[in-house]
């Protein structure tokens, strides 16, 4: 179950990097917090960035002709979600799933 959720989130966020960020990098790592182990994926692009992060995290909001579920959907599929974006410089989205 977790595997399906993780690859789906990876697909959504990877698509964002390609379509909005004009390409970028993903860093996948194993993380540990006390007894828990997990998987963290960090997607980084140096695209135009997101002007209004709150708006981008609204369900159904889309700047292109998608369903607007990429960011909000991945947030729901993963345990932790962190988004930082600087307009004109790029966007980083980091998601973690604990085992």
């Amino acid at each position: 179950m977790n595997q399906t959720k993780i690859i789906t989130a990876a697909s959504e966020l990877g698509r964002n990097v390609l379509e909005h960020g004009l390409g970028g990098d993903v860093h996948i790592e194993r993380v540990q917090r006390q007894e828990k182990i997990g998987l963290r994926m960090t997607f980084t692009d140096s695209g135009p960035g997101i002007e209004n992060v709150n708006l981008a995290l609204t369900d159904g909001y889309t700047s292109k002709n998608g369903l607007g579920l990429g960011l909000t959907g991945s947030k729901r599929l993963m345990d932790e979600f962190e988004l930082t974006s600087i307009p004109g410089q790029g966007t980083t989205v980091s998601v973690t799933k604990w085992k």
């Binding site: 179950m1 595997q3 959720k5 789906t8 959504e12 369903l67 579920l69 959907g73 729901r76 599929l77």
Partner: peptide, 14 residues
């Protein structure tokens, strides 16, 4: 449709 996909796409919001 596999069960894991049914749950995942529901959470995703499709």
């Amino acid at each position: 449709m596999q069960p894991a996909i049914a749950i995942t796409i529901t959470e995703l919001g499709i």
